[in-house]
Design a protein around this nucleic acid. Sequence first.
DNA 1: CTAGCGTATTTTGGATACAAAGGGCCCTAG
DNA 2: CTAGGGCCCTTTGTATCCAAAATACGCTAG
Lengths: 228, 228
Amino acid sequence: MAVDMRSAGEADLIRPVQRAVPLRQAVYESMVELVVSGRLNPGEHLVETDLARQLGVSRQPVREALHRLQAEGWVDLRPNQGAFVHEPTDNEVDQLLDARELLEVETARLAARSADAQAAARLRVICHEGEAAVKAGDAEGFITANNHFHAALADVAGNAVLAELAAIVGRRMRWYYRLAAPLRGETSCAEHLEMIDAIAAGDEKRAAKAARQHTERTRVAYHRTVQS
Amino acid sequence: MAVDMRSAGEADLIRPVQRAVPLRQAVYESMVELVVSGRLNPGEHLVETDLARQLGVSRQPVREALHRLQAEGWVDLRPNQGAFVHEPTDNEVDQLLDARELLEVETARLAARSADAQAAARLRVICHEGEAAVKAGDAEGFITANNHFHAALADVAGNAVLAELAAIVGRRMRWYYRLAAPLRGETSCAEHLEMIDAIAAGDEKRAAKAARQHTERTRVAYHRTVQS
DNA sequence: CTAGCGTATTTTGGATACAAAGGGCCCTAG
DNA sequence: CTAGGGCCCTTTGTATCCAAAATACGCTAG
């Protein structure tokens, strides 16, 4: 959370202090942070009034943020009962990974089809940002870069719908990423680079295979993590 | 739209007239209807105040409905400018069909894997409902049954994430369905039955092939429709 | 002592009121 | 006549307020 939004609108500089994002956006981000960081426990009942007071805003933006959070699977909204932090299950992460594999393999294939040196270069840059975050021990930064990479990949593939579906899955994965990802940041980046090489070469089969392997290894890493 | 929501809470029977759904749900459904039916034109600017007045509710439920509509791709929400009815493109329908094919084929495969006579029977019932709607010339009923079928299929497959992604794609497809679906209701049902048979037999390959064909024929039908 | 009902409190759902940002229009100056 | 600037109006974003629903607790009767 960190930011106290009450001060966001107050002028301490000459220029008219434009608050770039709407409040509900800030609230949304804060709440994702709260959930992902584990400060809100799964199953916990989120009371709008309390959240509003804690964040220093009215209930209105909180409500809108909660609706968005529901749409993205962070919370479950029960009519007349309010929001409950979503309780992730082992089953769910496997299903997410299945979906991710399906989307990712296809995306990689499409990306390879429209092979483009410039696009590959862009992907490499993002990939290296992830590596840098790993080296700096910045887990959150790595996850961000990771999502960036997958989004950029979808962009290269040129299918906005696939990109969006991948983004939905990706957002939900964040929850689990926090468990497994930090452990394999470096290998993950290496796998991304292999995908990029295949795509740059326009080799659909190799790209698909690399994507499949990448997802599969993520799955293995996750299961190893939760076991221990 | 048809329903005037103001009267929804009034008692005309002895039992306490429970309004089953929240207002925002009703507003959401009305607005989907308005968009799909073409009474709201693509690109049109939706003013919250006007919608609220026309539907006989306050701005609050309208706002929440608009947010949900955005999440589902019906409208585009520009900050500080409000909602605009999404403008569909030919490209987009192809991307949707690509995504649908990907999801549907995998779903059919999974469903076949967990073959189950009871599940197949359930699917057949839904399928026949669709046929009945076609025979009655009820286009909207067919589309509903159609979505029902795909949802049930995803349910049989046992992957809730895939089911949800398929539902997202399905909702967006509704827009285009209205153009193409009525023309091929009967053949569509026949294709569904072929999928069901394959699934009941536990034949993954045949189920996948049937799903692929089904999507492909939908695509052809759509393109034929928009050309003319 | 237990089960069932009724009430009271809590919390959400919806409405209204207010502030701020954006866009369009008119007016003026070059 | 055209380009630039400023004002006004429209529309969204946020806050507060009221009503309705759900749950939890306590009381009473069997």
